[in-house]
C-alpha cells in the first residue's frame, strides 16, 4: 500500500500531508483544471498554520511539490514579509525543497495578493492563497444560493452591483479581488490581488491554481485561458496607474506600495514586487530616492 515515507528531518510525511490527503487534493486540482474557473469542493485539512494565513495555498503547494521543484513564496509581492518567510521555511523543513526569491528560477510560486511583475513562463505554476473564493459572496451570503447561480451562469447580481457603482461613483469602485469571467462561462474571484494584476491572468503561459482552505475550495486557470475582467462598454476595465515611478528602481510599469516617510505628509512609492525591484537595481536602474536610502536594514523587531 502507499505508505508515506517520512523525511528523516522532521518525522512528518514529505511536504507534511499524508499520501491519502495528497491524492484527495490532487483529484480536486485535476477537476479544477478541467473546468476552468469552477470552484471544486475539497476536504481541506486542519494545517499547522491558522486559517486565513494561506492554508489553502499551502495544501495545493504540498500536493504538487516534488523533489526537483524550486519554490518561491511571496506575500504582498515580497519574499521577505513574515508570513512568506514562515511558509517558505515550512516547506524547506518538511520537503527539503530548493527555494528562491527569483521569479524566473521558480517552478512553483505561492502567492498572497500579487502576481509577480516578471511575466511567468511555460512550466511555472502560480499558487494563490484565497480567503473568500466566491465572487458573489458579499452580494449573496448563502452558499446554497451562489452554487445555483454558478450552475445557471446567472450573474445578474454582480452586473447590477457594478452598474450601481457606476451610477453612484461614476466608475466601478472595485480595486482588488476584481471579478473576472473565465472562458465566457464562470465568474471567478482572482483572490485579493490588486486589479492592476488582473490582465496578467489572461492567456498566461503558466498554470494558475487557487486554494481556499477555510472555505474548502480549489479552482484553476490552465495556461492560455481567456480571462476577462468584468466591465461595461462605456466604462471599460482600467488598470491602476501610478503617477510617480518607483523611488528605488525607477520602474513605471510596476505596482507600487506607498511608504510613509515622516509625520509631515512625506511619502514615497516603491515596488511591491521585491524581486523585480532588486533585479532592476542590479541592472543599473536607479530611482529618485536611492542615493538617500540605507538599503535593506531590518525594521521588524
Amino acid at each position: 500500500m502507499n505508505a508515506p515515507t517520512p523525511t528523516p528531518a522532521t518525522g512528518y510525511a514529505f511536504a507534511y500531508l499524508d499520501e491519502q490527503t495528497k491524492r484527495m487534493i490532487r483529484r480536486a486540482i485535476l477537476k479544477a483544471v478541467a473546468i476552468p474557473g469552477h470552484q471544486v469542493p475539497f476536504a481541506s485539512r486542519d494545517m499547522p498554520m491558522p486559517y486565513g494565513w494561506g492554508t489553502g495555498g499551502i495544501q495545493v503547494t504540498a500536493a504538487i511539490l516534488g523533489r526537483s521543484d524550486v519554490l518561491k513564496v511571496i506575500d504582498q509581492g515580497a519574499d521577505d514579509t513574515t508570513n512568506a518567510v514562515s511558509i517558505r521555511a515550512f516547506f524547506q523543513k518538511t520537503a527539503s525543497v530548493a527555494v528562491t526569491t527569483k521569479t524566473a528560477e521558480a517552478t512553483v510560486i505561492q502567492t498572497r495578493h500579487r502576481i509577480p511583475e516578471k511575466p511567468l513562463t511555460a512550466g511555472q505554476t502560480l499558487v494563490f492563497q484565497v480567503p473568500i473564493p466566491e465572487p458573489l459572496r458579499f452580494l449573496e451570503p448563502r452558499e446554497t444560493e451562489t452554487r445555483v447561480m454558478h450552475a445557471l451562469a446567472d450573474y445578474g447580481l454582480m452586473h447590477v452591483k457594478l452598474y450601481e457603482d457606476v451610477a453612484k461613483h461614476g466608475r466601478i469602485a472595485k480595486t482588488y479581488a476584481y471579478p473576472v469571467e473565465v472562458e465566457g462561462r464562470y465568474m471567478m474571484d482572482p483572490s485579493p490581488i490588486p486589479k492592476f494584476d488582473n490582465p496578467k491572468l489572461h492567456m498566461s503561459p503558466a498554470l494558475q491554481l487557487f486554494g481556499a482552505g477555510r472555505e474548502k475550495r480549489i479552482y484553476a486557470l490552465p495556461p492560455f485561458t481567456a480571462v476577462k475582467s468584468l466591465d461595461f462598454e462605456d466604462h471599460p476595465f482600467e488598470r491602476t496607474k501610478f503617477e510617480a515611478p518607483c523611488a528605488l528602481c525607477g520602474a513605471t510599469d510596476a505596482y507600487l506600495d506607498e511608504v510613509v516617510t515622516d509625520d509631515r505628509g512625506g511619502r514615497m512609492f516603491v515596488c511591491s514586487d521585491t524581486d523585480h525591484c532588486e533585479e532592476r537595481r542590479a541592472a543599473g536602474h536607479r530611482g529618485a530616492m536611492l542615493a538617500d536610502t540605507a538599503g535593506n536594514e531590518e525594521n521588524v523587531r
Binding site: 486542519d46 498554520m49 491558522p50 486559517y51 486565513g52 494565513w53 492554508t55 506575500d75 504582498q76 509581492g77 514579509t81 508570513n83 498572497r112 495578493h113 500579487r114 480567503p131 480595486t175 482588488y176 479581488a177 485579493p192 490581488i193 490588486p194 486589479k195 492592476f196 477555510r214 491602476t240 505596482y255 507600487l256 506600495d257 506607498e258 511591491s272
Partner: peptide
Amino acid sequence: VQATGFVEHLKLPHYVDFQAEL
C-alpha cells in the same frame, strides 16, 4: 479554529489592497 484564523488574519499585511483603495 477556522474563526480565529480568519479574524486574526487581518493582522497580516494587506498594504497592496489598501494601496489600491487609498
